[in-house]
């Protein structure tokens, strides 16, 4: 049985189609990453899986049951828009969220998670007295108590410092190790590449990529050269067969046209500068993302 099956789901808001005929399957025990520009439909899809929004067409099944049924208590959800009752004490708040979802006392689990995130000393403090990072960790705990079979995290690393982000990442992997299925959305392609078993890219409400990182990269072939040289990005103009140059600072990525020969590029390059590294590789997820979404990625409103 799959953790989630989304079949031909469409959701519209007025004249805007937020999700358009989306089909996807999330295997149990996997970490599934949603990527896509702002407004592409990631959050709407997550909200439909959690049963906050209802699809206009299509069907969503969670652990073999219709969304919103008994499975809802197995789903932990961290929304993108963070918010907690500000005047509640941390422990009381976490117990309230845990009991509301799980239907049982969760004091022991709350204490365990507070210890794990070094928040035990804040248990009696009101949420409004916490720093932003602490609040984010408290909200993450609220999503994972009681331990869910399915964890849905909308932009879980946003606003976290590297240490806190690493703790959340470790916690996600621990939960997966114990059998939980995780869906997360992210704009950080490094997170998607390193953390996710499967990646789904939604663009303008439609699925444009779905699979493992390797299978996605396979679709594009070895059409990318990563190079670093003494001349940097300035010496790369007008190389034969190069369609696009991405200057990443110390490294530059060159996208090759279909019929071009990397050896020819290398020959030309050594005549211009001293080359320190040169590798022919598959495109990065970031590059694939930009190829699909282009400049629109940063402009669309959220959905």
């Amino acid at each position: 049985m799959e953790a989630i099956e989304v079949r031909e789901v469409t959701k519209t808001f007025g004249s805007v189609t937020a999700v358009d005929d989306l089909t996807l399957t999330v295997p149990q025990g996997s970490v599934y990453g949603f990527i896509g520009p702002n407004g592409s439909g990631k959050t709407t899809t997550m909200r439909m899986i959690v049963n906050i929004f209802y699809p206009d067409r299509g069907a969503i099944r969670v652990f073999g049951q219709d969304a919103g049924g008994e499975s809802s208590k197995e789903i932990g959800y961290l929304p993108e828009e963070r918010g907690l009752y500000r005047r509640m004490e941390v422990r009381a708040l976490l117990e309230f969220h845990g009991e509301l979802r799980g239907g049982r006392n969760v004091t022991a689990e709350v204490n365990g998670w507070l210890d794990r995130f070094d928040l035990a000393h804040c248990a009696k403090r009101r949420v409004e007295t916490l720093s932003k990072g602490m609040s984010q960790k408290v909200q993450f705990i609220a999503a994972v108590v009681p331990e869910p079979k399915l964890l849905i995290l909308d932009e879980p690393f946003t606003g976290l410092d590297p240490v806190s982000a690493d703790r959340v990442r470790t916690a996600i992997l621990d939960l997966r190790r114990r059998g939980a299925t995780v869906i997360l959305s992210t704009h950080d392609m490094n997170v998607a590449e390193s953390l996710c078993d499967y990646i789904l890219m939604i663009y303008r409400g439609r699925k444009v990529l779905d699979g493992t990182l390797e299978s996605i990269q396979e679709q594009y072939g070895n059409d990318t050269i990563r190079v670093s040289s003494a001349g940097g990005g300035d010496v790369l103009q007008d190389l034969p067969g190069v369609e696009k140059i991405s200057d990443l600072g110390h490294v530059q990525e060159l996208r090759m046209s279909r019929a071009s020969d990397p050896q020819e590029v290398l020959r030309e390059l050594v005549t211009r500068t001293r080359v320190t590294t040169f590798s022919v590789t598959k495109p990065s997820l970031r590059d694939i993302f930009i190829r699909i979404a282009g400049h629109e990625a940063a402009e669309a409103p959220d959905a």
């Binding site: 959690v50 049963n51 906050i52 009752y85 500000r86 969220h97 909200q139």
Partner: peptide
């Protein structure tokens, strides 16, 4: 005020 502080979305995942 609770809506402004965005406390409801998480609750809506646990309760109708």
């Amino acid at each position: 005020e609770d809506k402004m502080q965005r406390v409801f979305e998480m609750l809506l995942a646990s309760a109708t």
